[in-house]
Amino acid sequence: MHVFADPTNLDAYLSGFLWILKLTGASAVLALVLGVLLAAFRVSPVPVLRGVGAAWVNIFRNTPLTLIIFFCYFGLFTTLGLTLSDDLDQNNYWLGVVGLSVYTAAFVCEAVRSGINTVPPGQAEAARAIGLTFFQTLRIVVLPQAGRAVVAPLGSVLIALCKNATIVGTIGLIEASSVMKDLINSNGDAVIAIFAVFAGTFAALLIPTGYFFGWLANRLAVKR
């Protein structure tokens, strides 16, 4: 483990994973908000909104994330001049957050929508019959009951998001996988060890996340 005994390498390792956590955190919040909104669109009685939701999912779920992240950099930033921060790293970070969020929102939308479909239709009918509006019905009656069915797949989406965050390295943000590549280039004698440390760190972050979501799903279960 001589590689990580070097304080410069250790700092790079830590800052790489810090970027991953920051990318995951900001994108998770944005993707959750956007994804729930899109799911609401997809089950709404308004055809235009349903169309917007379906188009979003079909476009972003079927485009490789690498392309989306590249587009955020070369399309939004270089060509269209969208600058999200004057600091180079911060700018790349926020461009990455935009790409990860729009991509992940498509998956959140589908997880939430399939959860909504597990709630018996009579629940929404009864809610509408007492005069709740569409969005009240969704917020007060349907989504709270969709919880159990939504939480576990959302956990998988979050885990995938965290690993996908490494793709932001392709537009110049020195996140974990870029750090790993640099360390491997300069430490040819410890390739396997470096791989193991980075993979192990991801596992250490993500395995508890999976268990947490499983526990949460059981907590949120609704008796029928």
Binding site: P45, V46, P120, G122, Q123, E125, A126, A127, R128, A129, I130, G131, L132, T133, F134, V141, P144, Q145, V222, K223, R224
Partner: peptide, 25 residues
């Protein structure tokens, strides 16, 4: 049609279903 006026009308008409449909949560 759909929207707020329909919600208002529904609030003035009580409905009881075959399968009760009480809010389970």
């Amino acid at each position: 049609a759909e929207g707020k006026p329909l919600a208002k009308l529904r609030s003035e008409v009580g409905m009881v279903f075959q399968s009760f449909n009480l809010f389970a949560h």
